[in-house]
């Protein structure tokens, strides 16, 4: 099956999730004996585009127009579906980022395709059956979704698939899709960056704080530990509801579901709604002074103790570790 992957850039740069999705799409192409084509929209330099070749795309369709330099949902969806048709793709893959989540459903409707979002593994393909595993019930379970359509659209969850440098190269071609005024009904006026902080949904490491920290003034040590580790900061729902931390840091069933390699929960008891949002983490560390905190039941490592005693020790230990490296 020929596969098309959308390589999302943010202001001309690719992020880790883009390399992950290319590796994932290359594996599907290999699995089904097809070729992998990538499509890029916006202003990405040729040398940056060429990087994508290493991960298994044999061709890159480059759509470069000033009007497309910032995200326009309808136009992007139209271009991706035109690219899919031009390479006769049976599978179209995107990243399950904020942008991917807005784009993929539109692409799926345009292509009359069945759609699985947030894939966690490669598809299982046996004969005519094509099924993909994804999370469900906000991390409390998994669902195996069967796609019955000729074309399939998949978005890949961040941190779910390993980047594989295959040492291959890709040819870059200009691609000229047809778009009309109708495709440009939304306009990005401004992009506001939340400093250089690591974003929570695709972070590899997360340090999260709860009510046990007693107040927003005590977040300094959480931020220091996170910054030393190169981690994103998160929080529990009561913390964001009280306005101690912004909503976009709220981890849990009604906030952000994360899947980092390491999740450190400090002063969070572990309500079922919070646990749902972190169940996909590879290693969970819990620091809580209550030995009965439910979070310890799903933790890999735990310290029963006061955060105000433990965290400064951890900060020192990370400094020592970094000094050795």
């Amino acid at each position: 099956m020929n596969v098309l992957v959308y390589i999302e850039n943010i202001t001309g740069k690719f992020k880790k999730s883009t390399y992950e999705v290319v590796s994932y799409a290359a594996a599907i192409a290999k699995q089904t004996g097809g070729t992998l084509t990538a499509v890029s929209i916006g202003n990405v330099e040729a040398s940056t585009l060429a990087e994508i070749g290493k991960y298994g795309a044999s061709k890159i369709l480059n759509v470069q127009q000033d009007a497309l330099s910032s995200f326009v949902n309808q136009a992007y969806a139209s271009i991706i579906s035109q690219a899919a048709k031009s390479v006769d793709a049976s599978v179209v893959v995107l990243s399950n980022t904020f942008t991917g989540k807005g784009l993929a459903p539109r692409v799926a409707v345009k292509l009359a395709a069945g759609y699985v979002d947030g894939a966690l593994e490669l598809p299982t393909i046996t004969g005519n059956s094509f099924s993909v595993k994804r999370g469900a019930f906000s991390g409390k379970a998994f669902a195996n979704v069967t796609l019955n359509s000729a074309i399939k659209v998949i978005t890949l969850s961040p941190n779910a698939y390993q980047i594989n440098d295959l040492g291959t190269t890709a040819t870059i071609e200009d691609f000229n899709p047809s778009t009309g005024a109708h495709d440009f009904q939304t306009m990005v006026k401004e992009i506001i960056r939340a400093s250089d902080k690591i974003s929570l949904p695709d972070a590899e490491l997360v340090v999260s704080g709860g009510r046990g920290l007693k107040g927003p003034e005590n977040w300094g040590m959480i931020e220091e530990l996170a910054s030393l580790l190169g981690a994103a900061t998160g929080c529990s729902k009561p913390v964001s509801d009280s306005g101690w931390r912004p909503h976009e840091e709220h981890v849990g069933q009604t906030g952000i579901a994360v899947a980092p390699n390491l999740y450190i929960a400090i002063g969070i008891s572990g309500a079922i709604q919070h646990l749902a949002g972190v169940s996909a983490s590879k290693v969970i560390v819990v620091i809580n002074k209550d030995p009965e905190a439910p979070f310890f039941k799903v933790a890999d490592y735990g310290i029963v103790g006061d955060a105000f005693e433990v965290v400064p020790q951890l900060i020192e230990a990370v400094k020592v570790l970094k000094a050795q490296a």
């Binding site: 099924s131 195996n144 019955n148 799903v298 490592y301 006061d306």
Partner: peptide
């Protein structure tokens, strides 16, 4: 176009390793 063929529950995690304060 799509249907859920089955569900799985997450595998149980191994027991927590406790480290003293």
């Amino acid at each position: 176009l799509s249907s859920i063929s089955s569900f799985d529950l997450p595998a149980a995690r191994s027991t927590v390793k406790l480290i003293s304060t």
